[in-house]
Amino acid sequence: MHRAAAWLMGACVVTAAVLYVPQFAEAVGRRELVVRVHEICGVLLPVPVLLGLASRAFRADLGRLNRFHPYDRTWLRTALRREREPRPSGKFNAGQKLYAGWIAGAALVMLGTGLLMWFTHLAPIGVRIGSTFVHDWLSLAVGIVIAGHVWMAIGDPVARRGMRTGSVDRPWAKREHPLWEPESDAAPAGEDE
């Protein structure tokens, strides 16, 4: 799930860089092929999420990501002040919830504007210019935010193992996500991605 989305997103970012940065464009050339790969990966990007909806655990996680509790405000305040404590969180902390919502929305906007740029007959010229504008600038923001996402993951080997194997050890969970256990009592438990 996460891996498929990550590969597709990675391919979008790499091909975008090749299309966009003159030095890379000069080194790679083959503009038609790169455009095609970018288009296909972009269109496939929502597919892993849609497939995931078939899984009850996945839907439960979406519910967790969607729900902001009062303690999430505390977590964000602590994080913004760059303090360590207190950072109360369930299975997903407030930062992860914000990231999930933002990147999902951004991906949909990139998909919509990208389709308008791809199938030029769908919209009049004004809308297409606007789409190119949004696609260009949002791609920059998405690139920066994804770099941040990867940076956080690099700093947390246990979380990475959790994404790979589907489970994390209890002391880590108690320390980083103290409200996870009570949350699981209320909602159906689901540990896989």
Partner: peptide, 11 residues
């Protein structure tokens, strides 16, 4: 709230 974030981005 998360849903609002997604819709906000779309807007």
């Amino acid at each position: 709230m998360g849903r609002r974030l997604v819709l906000g981005m779309l807007g």
